[in-house]
Design a protein around this nucleic acid. Structure first.
Ligand SMILES: [Mn+2]
Ligand SMILES: [Mn+2]
Ligand SMILES: [Zn+2]
Ligand SMILES: [Zn+2]
Lengths: 145, 145
DNA sequence: TTCCTAAAATGGAATAATTACAAATTAGAA
DNA sequence: TTCTAATTTGTAATTATTCCATTTTAGGAA
């Protein structure tokens, strides 16, 4: 678990001022699973009275711009945010809006090799994101929220 | 190129009434490259005076529901639509909003084999979509729009 | 053919997520 | 402690999309 100090240092290291709003948003991101801006606002507004939704959007945008967090696009059209900024993929539930991380360096290697041999003409590939669509086991449902 | 008759037959075969609006939307989809609803409206409203934007959304939703077209989510958050309903992936330009189709049965096979061996616990994988992020060659820029 | 009706289209209003912007506040450098 | 650029706030605007009541129409039945 990341401490407030660690988060504060991360923010500062990105050349940003350390504000309670930014720290709290980062904490909420680490606590929640690919939350929407509104969920972050609900989580954070408890500890930061008078927090504005606009601030949440601002903070998320700025943190994403610095590469500290990632934006995750879902099929419903609502933006979701990701505390994990390292390269990874996502599993999407076909029935619900559940999203889970998927790390697989072996697969990444396979894909990298494949596209090293087989270039796409007219396109300079820089990153590959997999959207794994499917269903989470019923027994796992509790993890969803 | 698909004829109006072909399109009409497709619509009818899906159990839908054949209306000028639906045929025109399908034609626009085949003409444009992963267009937004608004682009389709602009394209179609010329031939269908009095067309309502709502109708375009309705038609797109219904065609997508029947599997005749696909919805494509982009990072900007705007929904885009795809006349190609067969399984394929997408190349996204990092700098612009250009999206192009990517077909690769060989790669699909590799992925299928990979996930046949290496199951994901707690998740029943049904479909894999690749988002290929990168840049289209400058010389290819004319193809965008 | 004409009639009928469920399906579809229309248009105006509502919603949801997000953005714009001007004024107030504040982090942190000096 | 002071200062100011950076940040937050709150309200209003925007954008994409959906809702819904009303009107129109496609296509089957008579
Ligand atoms: Mn972090
Ligand atoms: Mn078609
Ligand atoms: Zn993630
Ligand atoms: Zn496509």
């Amino acid at each position: 678990m990341k401490t407030i100090q660690h988060i504060a240092r991360e923010i500062s290291a990105s050349g940003l001022k350390v504000t309670p709003q930014r720290v709290a948003v980062m904490q909420a991101l680490h606590k929640l699973n690919h939350p929407r801006a509104e969920e972050i606002f609900n989580e954070v507004s408890g500890s930061i009275p008078g927090l504005s939704p606009t601030t949440v959007y601002n903070v998320l945008d700025i943190l994403a711009g610095k590469g500290m967090i990632k934006k995750v696009k879902t099929d419903s059209g609502v933006m979701r945010y990701d505390a994990v900024s390292d390269h990874h993929h996502h599993m999407y539930c076909i029935d619900t809006d559940r999203v889970e991380d998927f790390f697989d360096p072996e697969l990444d290697m396979i894909l990298q090799n494949y596209f090293q041999k087989k270039k796409i003409e007219g396109f300079k590939l820089e990153d590959i994101k997999l959207q794994l669509m499917g269903k989470f086991d019923e027994s796992e449902k509790s993890k969803s929220i």
